[in-house]
Amino acid sequence: MNDDDTLLVGAVAYTANVVPIWEGIKEYFADSDTPMDFVLYSNYERQVEELLAGHIDLAWNTNVAWVRTLRRTNGTARAVAMRDTDLTFRTLFIGRQGTGRLSLSDFGGRRIALGSRDSGQARILPVHFLTEAGIGADDAEWVIFDSDVGKHGDTGTSDLDALRAVLADDADVAAVGVNTWQAMTAGGEDLVADLEVVWESEDYNHCNFTALEGLDEDRVERWVQHLLAMDWENPEHRHILELEGLREWKRPELEGYRSLHEAMESQGIADGW
């Protein structure tokens, strides 16, 4: 399958809609001089192993999978493209209406609902932000939802579980990815009037296409250029862009991964399973 001309891209099947997304992207590349095919994995750990083993050329990685790949390759792996939305990802803490804006130091003594242990946005980074502000595990009550482990928070299930805990008064605040909150408030903030944002992180980076050092740079560059040419105004492209949650593909900017590097280091999160 992986002949000279076809780039093989790995992705994780966190919903059935991953199939039409990648079928659409594959079709978009079919007419280019860098055709591609894709392989779907059930979890990011398997995908990283497969990339390292050379079974795929590119991996569509979460931020956690990217950091792991970078560590496993002594920093030689390359990020080659990402979504516009991957440059402005954030973690939000959501509380019941009337909680008001909080600073992280106010979180002491509260019940904090957190998502899956492999979710950058719902667990690893919020714990990091809190710890940096002096709120450790002993200073607050952590209410943990380890749902959909292996998907690195992509399904959003643990975000929603955490929010349900807030609504049921089993927690005071819930950590969620900004994408979850945007999906909830898409029809207007008044539709979720019993909840409110109480704290918001700085922007950080989320997913990227990751390649190993040995992959032909010219070939990847031609592939990336064709990827960047996808156009929101073109209805066929737009259908794929909407499903994948972006308006525009971008060149990577790696500064936004710094906080996650630090978080995984300080929390001692393993490089693999």
Binding site: A16, N17, T157, L167, M184, V192
Partner: peptide, 13 residues
Amino acid sequence: ILRLVEQVGATPA
């Protein structure tokens, strides 16, 4: 809204 996000999100296009 939580039900909508969860159920519709998990439904194939």
